[in-house]
Design a binder for these strands. Sequence first.
DNA 1: CGTGCAGTTGAGCAAATTCAACGCTTGTGG
DNA 2: CCACAAGCGTTGAATTTGCTCAACTGCACG
Lengths: 230, 230
Amino acid sequence: MLSPAAIRVSNAGNAIKVPERQTEAGPVPQALSDTIETGVQMSFARNAEIYGENEPADYLYKVISGAVRTYKVLADGRRQIGAFYLPGDVFGLESGEHHVFSAEAVIDSKIAVIRRSAVMGLAARDNDVARQLWVLTSRELRRVQDHIMLLIKTAQERVVGFLLEMSARMPSETQIELPMSRQDIADYLGLTIETVSRTLTQLEDSAAIELATSRRVLLRDRIALRRLNG
Amino acid sequence: MLSPAAIRVSNAGNAIKVPERQTEAGPVPQALSDTIETGVQMSFARNAEIYGENEPADYLYKVISGAVRTYKVLADGRRQIGAFYLPGDVFGLESGEHHVFSAEAVIDSKIAVIRRSAVMGLAARDNDVARQLWVLTSRELRRVQDHIMLLIKTAQERVVGFLLEMSARMPSETQIELPMSRQDIADYLGLTIETVSRTLTQLEDSAAIELATSRRVLLRDRIALRRLNG
DNA sequence: CGTGCAGTTGAGCAAATTCAACGCTTGTGG
DNA sequence: CCACAAGCGTTGAATTTGCTCAACTGCACG
């Protein structure tokens, strides 16, 4: 049973209207990720919807700055966050023609956007692009599998796992700057905000972490954290 | 906290040694899945290991008959089953060079095997194969995402979700022949065998299903099941 | 200086786990 | 052919974990 987190703003009406832009021949960039970056950039305000579940998956996205969450809401309001994407991450890759998850900006964000058809067209001609498309999808698969391994653990292990995961994705060795709320974390971990909060203070009491502010976490004892990670 | 299900046989020593076989030119089959089927077939006894975690991912597999589970065991013995593969399903596709999960035969099974390098070589020359490789990976991604949505639900919803999922993959409309044990189901759903068992009898008591035998389930009231699915 | 949102903390409760016992089926050796 | 052990599944009772409901704090913003 999860948190009925349906009551939250979603500055919709920010529909995507990216000007058509032909991807020219020229020298093929080695990284598809870089190709996306050459696309149009858009700004999204905190909590603005980037795309919705079941919408046609016409674009690929790359976070330039800010943070993005993808999520799905069940009939009764329970929300599951599928992933957080940080600067440099590519998202929006999905199997079929339509998105399975919705995507929102966690905080004000700049996102590079590229037409899927452009990439696909490129992939059809260029084998290397096709391979990278596949590699990106595989990486996503791997990430989701890791997420599953998180979800079967105890509350403490989930929170610790989340902190270690975020830490690995952040520049600083010991400091984590969380762009997301406790509700976001809870919905990512399949817990309630209360349990997340309690677990964090408990970790602080045991000197494993320090909560500089509620959004800034200092990892004080990585050894202990790794031990608590299950 | 999950079941310490580490104590289970694993008829190893069934190392894969597939004879090299050049994939000839000829007309390109439209389905990669069919291509795999043209490969060498191997038999695996119940509980035999097909590949292990961290082994090089040199092959692609397709279930001809039987059933396969992929899984990962945590340090303390908790096991999470990532997926069940039934006849017709392709598995073994992974991002990197090494498997992230282990794979075992749930029951005696026949598996078609093909060298990954052969497929990749084919993909390098043939765009269509590359695309299908990507489609298969995307489909797997989708499946894992659905699995996550299962794992955040209540015990009853998970069990019902599992039954509906299996039902959709089986020939019969109303009857499910389960190849796997309660332990397997529990480890797939992130529950204990006791909870799975109790939930099934509870579903039977409410006339939603009927347990012909412990491995044969009859779906008596799909409407009720869909309602209980969350 | 209030109002509102995010986060924390506490008390009681519900769901699922743990521990334990038992029944049924299957296979095996005497 | 029977007896018995082993594996699988079910059921019961006690316990634990995380959730629900509720109150309260701190902080940002008007």
